[in-house]
């Protein structure tokens, strides 16, 4: 794959390879250029998302017991922690939408709130090996894991101004849940667990609708088809999960219930399991 095909004058210079001269938009590539087998970069690890509004915003009463459990679980599991925004993110979106900021502008301001929460969580977990990790250090993840460190990352994907326009309104469709899903998927980890303050996915937000029914298990496509008034995860997560190579199952759990996280890390079904298919 190393020969250069020199273009004389205004002709293009190519490197010989299977994609030479392709526009990369050709339909034939969609199947032809799929890897035989996709590498898992960090098998054996688990990604755990700590909710912003559901956990962090509740302060020590919720955060401290969860952190104790995380530290305990660390003895048996290699974890990467992600943390999302919560009420301050909702506040800044409200202001930004009142100002008429475009979707990309809203995505640009969302991350700062997660940075705050990551700093808070790192401070709490510092003595037990919690390290706040910025995106630039992502390829060093194996080193952190091997050293017994608990990497703490923000969840929001780094699309910033380059966030796609939304289907409806201006709130970025690709939010923290999708970002954490993509983190887990690109690393090819064993498990992805979203720690929230509800048992899992309901047919509506149980805080607003007492008739909301709990859904213990569902596929991504089924969940989207239900077109619910509220989902506990972004809809983009369900779309991404349907195309999973590695992370074909995620679990949403109530992190206010002691030992739920340890049980979920061990593969027990304690919340809602959402499957790729």
């Amino acid at each position: 794959m190393n020969e250069i095909e020199k273009g004389e004058g205004i002709k293009r210079t190519h490197i010989k390879n299977p994609l030479m001269r392709e526009s990369l938009m050709g339909k034939h590539l969609q199947d032809q250029m799929s890897p035989v087998k996709e590498l898992a970069l960090l098998p054996g690890a688990s990604v755990v998302g700590v909710g912003g509004r559901s956990i962090m915003d509740r302060g020590r009463a919720a955060v401290m017991p969860l952190c104790e459990e995380i530290v305990k679980a660390k003895e048996n599991f290699n974890m990467i922690l992600g943390v999302s925004g919560g009420t301050r993110m909702r506040h800044v979106f409200s202001i930004g939408m009142d100002l008429g900021l475009p979707t990309g502008g809203l995505a640009q301001i969302a991350g700062a709130v997660e940075e705050q929460n990551a700093s808070l969580l790192q401070a709490v977990l510092s003595k037990d090996g919690g390290v706040q990790m910025c995106r630039e250090h992502f390829p060093e993840m194996p080193k952190y894991i091997a050293a017994g460190i608990l990497p703490i990352i923000i969840c929001m994907p780094p699309y910033h101004f380059w966030e796609e326009p939304a289907d409806k309104g201006r709130i970025p469709m690709n939010g923290p849940d999708l970002g954490l899903y993509l983190t887990a998927e690109v690393l090819g980890v064993d498990r992805l667990i979203f720690v929230k303050d509800k048992k899992g996915l309901f047919t509506d937000d149980p805080d607003k609708n007492p008739k909301a029914e709990f859904i213990p298990e569902i596929t991504a496509a089924e969940a989207l088809k239900m077109d619910l008034p509220e989902y506990i995860l972004e809809r983009k997560v369900f779309e991404a999960l349907a195309l999973a190579r590695h992370v074909k199952e995620i679990q949403v759990i109530d992190g206010l219930v002691p030992s739920n996280l340890s049980a979920a890390l061990a593969g027990e079904h304690v919340g809602t399991i959402i499957r790729s298919a």
Partner: peptide, 10 residues
Amino acid sequence: STLAESTLSG
């Protein structure tokens, strides 16, 4: 805020 009680999804 108007979004305070929202899951932002749905």
